[in-house]
Write a protein that binds this DNA or RNA. Structure first.
Lengths: 230, 230
DNA sequence: CCAAAAGTGTTTTCGTTACACCCATGC
DNA sequence: GCATGGGTGTAACGAAAACACTTTTGG
């Protein structure tokens, strides 16, 4: 915040363009889940300083948009997705983090269901990357991703956000696998089921998996109604 | 982050001042504890739009400083304090949040021991305010404070940061009172002592309170060594 | 009938809560 | 001796962890 106790500073702020020579960007950590693995959506970095590296999806904040709006816009532009889960991680503001000048970036993360929008990906040079097998990324994006994953691991234990990674109908095995992929550890199946049913997060659809080569599991849906009420 | 997939945007970013017409500020929620109450250090707001209101301590981010550095600088300038606990809360970026123009602000919070620097306060128009009795503040500072307190309540249960609010030597009653002031609820004395001793956070100084009108309690210190090792 | 995963309960362990009495000091 | 807070232990409860066998389906 502008130093309000100092009228000179306020005046300077209003008149002097020097105070504005800092760029503000938004970077979105867009996470998806497929075949037992957590994935992140990246774009090839076109800056010569980072040739051959990938980066998170980001853009400059526009003068007339809130930072939350900006993150939605970026996600919409890149994936065509509306109405998704998106949450701020934190802001990264090292002086040298962008070779093109002083740019601080606000990190956001989003959890999306990969299958819902495979089509849109061909519009951009975007690819899903396995989170566990990522090498060096452009800028400080490894750090942003690591910070996001830390936050995500605690958040999924508190809030029912993980359902954003799954299709509308899913089996308990799929749900458990997503937890395991994010937490990076195996969970006991019986204890998991017990705990999940205690939450009242699920609607029993009384449907079953098809096209599986074993006994089909029951399908569930996330009880969205209940969480809109809160 | 600058949209690296789009060379035009990069070029525009490097050339066009329009991308820089956003101010970035830092606001510090400086919290202290005294006589059983949690307090926040505020400054009188000199903007005419917020006449008579108080605001958090903030300043504009300088071109050559990291955002973490900036928060340290602000704290140092205002309180004379060095080497304190300071942590990012999150960034607030509504379009209209600052009447002087577009300014996004990164919130930080600090926990300090009020007694250590009473002297410096006279240099500024600063006052400690009871967190529980705060009315409207300037800008979106109520929101920043609320967000900070939420974060703080979970953080003190995980990490030994609360000791920053206390003098070097303190009794268990004082420590418990700080927890209670932050959490806003009473704790059971026996359970609290049991739990605190299990953490290995404390050094038993084998000293006792003086100048109390009742049986003096034992004094403890936070085991800083142990946490520097980690 | 074989492979593969679904589905299901009980016991143990551990951390959290609730709770009451005597003790040391200042006045 | 009285008021004030310091210091202490145990029982009950509930959440989490450990753990194995039967069932259903496809092939």
């Amino acid at each position: 915040m502008l130093n309000e106790s100092n009228p000179r500073a306020v005046k300077k702020f209003q008149q002097d363009r020097e105070y504005f020579q800092i760029g503000v960007s938004i970077d979105c950590v867009i996470l998806g889940y497929e075949k037992g693995k957590l994935k992140v959506l990246l774009i090839e970095c076109k800056l010569k300083e980072y040739e051959g590296l990938w980066s998170l999806l980001g853009d400059i904040l526009q003068p007339e948009e809130d930072i939350d709006e900006a993150s939605y816009r970026i996600l919409k532009d890149r994936t065509g997705l509306d109405d998704v889960f998106l949450e701020q991680v934190q802001t990264f503001g090292s002086v040298k983090r962008h070779p093109g000048g002083r740019v601080i970036t606000v990190g956001y993360y989003s959890l999306i269901n990969i299958r819902d929008h495979q089509l849109k990906l061909s519009d951009n040079i975007l690819h899903w990357h396995l989170v566990n097998e990522l090498k060096e990324m452009a800028f400080d994006h490894n750090k942003i991703l690591d910070t996001t994953l830390c936050k995500l691991r605690t958040r999924i234990m508190e809030e029912p956000i993980i359902f954003n990674l799954l299709p509308k109908k899913f089996s308990l095995r799929e749900l458990q696998s997503v937890y395991e992929a994010i937490l990076g550890s195996k969970l006991d199946r019986r204890n998991f089921r017990k705990k999940i049913f205690l939450t009242d997060w699920l609607i029993d659809l009384n449907e079953f998996e098809t096209d599986v080569t074993h006994r089909p599991g029951k399908l569930y849906a996330f009880n969205f109604q209940k969480f809109l009420q809160k």
